[in-house]
Design a protein around this nucleic acid. Sequence first.
DNA 1: ATCGTGCATCGTCGAATGTCGATGAAGGAG
DNA 2: CTCCTTCATCGACATTCGACGATGCACGAT
Lengths: 119, 119
Amino acid sequence: MTVTSATTPTNRSTSSEECCIPTPVDTLVPPPDDETLAAMAKAVAHPARLAILQLLTHRETCVTGDVVAELPLAQSTVSEHLRILREAGLIQGEIEGPRTRYCVNATGLAILKAGINAL
Amino acid sequence: MTVTSATTPTNRSTSSEECCIPTPVDTLVPPPDDETLAAMAKAVAHPARLAILQLLTHRETCVTGDVVAELPLAQSTVSEHLRILREAGLIQGEIEGPRTRYCVNATGLAILKAGINAL
DNA sequence: ATCGTGCATCGTCGAATGTCGATGAAGGAG
DNA sequence: CTCCTTCATCGACATTCGACGATGCACGAT
């Protein structure tokens, strides 16, 4: 399928201060085309990925290991779910020394909401 | 996966007047649990099914044949997509003589929106 | 330089999905 | 009744997904 990253070009920056201080976007994003919306919906269409998304919105844990600790899944599986969410533009990851910090991509989430609400 | 129909119990009534005069619900539905939301998102996570949903909201065609005519897919494939949307509680079908009339299930759609917006 | 830790990626396997043509059941028309 | 239409369902097939363990890589510490 290869969504080729919806909003963010597979964001994996190394600087700080742009993750977990998420872009305060929640307003006025245009609803996406069907392909993009379908890709985003597919990313969200899994209980584990929903759990990850909620984890990332309600905490600021962000680090992969924390997510793994919260879910009854192998590390590789969680990593895969994180990759899917990232490629869909719903979260973004930032390499922080030996670990990776994830947080919600507010813009991507807003686009998803816009698309669903437009149905 | 067997979603066992999210909101409506696999609605396929024979009476008229309850389809395409859709329940005016668009307010105050509770966000669903992760399983239900994932199932609904999965139902929507396909361009053809998004197209069907939009077709059903912006027209009142509803009849299966019309949907088939609009999509570059075989009749059996479209029928399958309609089944998936119906079992997810997003549309409802009503047998009308030799044909089937589909329309959006406003309640189901509202639940989906509530779940996504709660993310 | 050598370890140990934290993740991503690869390879694999079974299950689910998407698509189609063929078949079948229900109903209307003649 | 016998056709024809309309649709759902079945069977087959290729593709994708979900999950895991194993491997590899980058980094920090020793």
